[in-house]
Structure formats: C-alpha cells, structure tokens
Amino acid sequence: MASNPQTLTLAQQGAKLGRWMTLPTQLLLVFIFAFPGLMIIYVSLSWWGPLEGVPWYYAYESLNWFENYIYLFEDERLWGSIWRTLLIMLVVVPVEFFLGLGLAILFVDNFTGKRVFYSILLMPMMIVPAVAGYMFYILFQSNGPVNQLLSLITGFEIDILWLSETDNAFVAIMIADIWQWTPLMFLILLAGLLGVPEDQLKAATLLGANWGQKFLRIALPKMRIVMIIALVIRAVEAFKLFDVMYVMTKGGPGVATETISVYVYKVTFMELEWSYVSAIGFAILMFLTALGAIGIIILSNAQKKRLANVVD
C-alpha cells in the first residue's frame, strides 16, 4: 500500500510497536512456561531428588523413563487427595452458587441499608485466605465459640472435635470455603441479575408472568454466560484449594483431609521425592490443558453455531 517503500504504513508501524509492547508479556510467559516445563518433564523421568547430592541436570544418571508415571496410578494417597479435592469442589461450588444466587435475588431492587449490607457481605472474600483459615481454626477449636454457640442453641454441652476428626474437619473446611467465597458468587450473580434488561422483565409482567416465570424464562436464560463464568472461576479456584486447608488442618488428621495441593506440598517438603512431584505436576498440567482446550472448542463451536443461525 505504501507509496514510498522507505516509510512504513500506519498498520506496519502499529504491528511493529505491538510486537514491542507484547514482548515483556511474551518473555515472562516463556520464562515461566518453557524452562520449568522442560525441567519438570526431564526430572519427572528420573529418580532425581534434592538429597541425591548432584544438581538437577544430572538427573539423566538415574533415568527411569516412566516409572514415576506408572507409580502415579498406583498411589492411593494421590487418588485419595484427588477424590477429596473433587468432593470439596462438588459440595462447596454448588452451595456457594445457590447461596450467592439467593442473596443476589434479595439485592436486585432497592431497599434501606442496601449499600451498607452489600459492603459487609463482600468482606469475607477480601480477607487474606490464610487469615480466613486462621479465623476458622480458632472458631472450630473444641473449646471455641462454635461449640459454645451450639451448646447454647441445643442446651447440651457440645464439645465436637472439629479439626481432629476426619468428617468434622471436612465439614469445617467446607464451611470456611463457603464463608469466604459465597460473596464472590453473590457479587457475580448479582451483576448478572442486574444485567437482565428491565424492559423485558416489565414486558413479561405486562403479559401476565409471575415472579417465578420471569425468573425461569427471562432472567436465568439471560444469565447463562454469567453463571458459567462464576462456576468455572470458582471450580478452578476450589481445585487449587490450599491456604485455608493448610492453615486449618495441614491435611490432617493424618492424611484425612489432604487435597491435591496439600498432598503435593507434603511430598515436596517432607518426602522430598521431587521427581515424583514433577510427574504429578506435569500430569496435572496436561489434564488441565486438555480440559481447557475442550472448553474452548465447545465455546467456539457454540459461537459458530450461533453465527450460522444468524446468517443462515
């Protein structure tokens, strides 16, 4: 396009500047993906660990190919931690979703005190997670206020061992997670509800729809994307769960409440089996990447289908 080959067109100039501007991001990504990625694969194919007394690049000396990956399938503690992570995810995410949705519905129209209530409701998610973990750690002490409140309500002397009995510890951790992240669901879903076009709700009312019909037929379908975003974000974060749990139970009693993150942390620092941890890490990365790719394919297919529908 350029009449003069010496000068760059605006678009070429832009592309050049664009490459420079994205360079730092690219570099950081390469820095954090490429080298650790290669290293994790390399080390995971050996027996190498920090106690070997040789630097990691000598890992080829103890090359074992896929032994670590094979062991991965036999490791009951790993699968236990995966199962527990999923269990926590499957409980807390829906509970947070419905509690958040319920609260959001109450906050759609205006009422006295709305702003203050809103600010307070958001507080839990702004608390540093490790501190939130500590809050629940002290609440759930056997001589702590939770037992006291339960005693007051029931009239019996209650001294449940919340954190040192497996099932109770699970419940305590889930309660802590629900406490901290229901506000996030509330926040996102409220934004979704407020985004439902008011005219369409009025139109539905004028056509005789009652509250439930409006909610189910107008609001929910319009919030589909918002709900998916909220659920995905929470599911991803719940999968990573570490801070609250580590502070509250350190995965205990024993290994009873270990999630994947806590398990990996322990194998890293207590058993020092770094090559095995690398194998686990790499497997998780592959699994999540595959999951992400599937998600993106589904999304873009849905997009294409919609476009096709519109063009037709």
Binding site: D199, Q200, K202, A203, A204, I218
Partner: peptide, 9 residues
C-alpha cells in the same frame, strides 16, 4: 404495552 425498544425476548 409496546416498548420503545420493543423488549423482545
């Protein structure tokens, strides 16, 4: 009622 922007679902 017909809204200005039609409020079609």
């Amino acid at each position: 009622f017909v809204f200005q922007n039609y409020a079609i679902f």
